[in-house]
Each structure stands twice: as structure tokens, then as C-alpha cells.
């Protein structure tokens, strides 16, 4: 188990910024991602990008 015993909890936050703020208030190191819907939120474009990513990966 990649656990939290030997190392401190360190969080990447994607989405509601309030959650990053709450973690900072608890002195938990957190990186907040300035997330926005990929591909401009256009489902068809997103589908194409995901296919390309699969081919790539």
C-alpha cells in the first residue's frame, strides 16, 4: 500500500477551490489546479482528443 505512514499527505486539488483552502487551513500541502473543461467543453472535440491520447499512449 502506498500509504501515508512514512510520508505526509500532499494533495493535488482539481475542481472546487474551497477544498484547497480548507486543506491549507489544516496545514496540509496542496497544489490547486486551475482546472477548466478540456477541449472548450465540446464533447466531440474531447472524444477526438481522448482517441489521439490513446493512440499516443
Amino acid at each position: 500500500m502506498k500509504d501515508f505512514r512514512s510520508k505526509q499527505l500532499r494533495v493535488v486539488n482539481l475542481g472546487l477551490e474551497v477544498f484547497a483552502d480548507e486543506l491549507k487551513n489544516q496545514n496540509v500541502p496542496v497544489t490547486h489546479v486551475r482546472w477548466r473543461p478540456p477541449a472548450g467543453g465540446k464533447p466531440r472535440l474531447l472524444e477526438i482528443l481522448e482517441k489521439l491520447e490513446e493512440l499516443d499512449g
Partner: peptide, 26 residues
């Protein structure tokens, strides 16, 4: 404050948990 998970991990590689609250479709 990076713009993606990959960017976040590049800057903070010791991160061990992702908190995800983006809209359900993503």
C-alpha cells in the same frame, strides 16, 4: 497553480492524493 494534473505533479512530485470535484462528465 498549474492548469493540469500533469503540471501539478511536475511541480509537486511528492503529491500522494488527488482531490477531484470537477463536473461529473470529466
Amino acid at each position: 497553480s498549474p492548469s493540469s494534473l500533469a503540471g501539478a505533479l511536475a511541480g509537486a512530485p511528492e503529491s500522494n492524493l488527488a482531490m477531484i470535484s470537477v463536473p461529473g462528465a470529466y
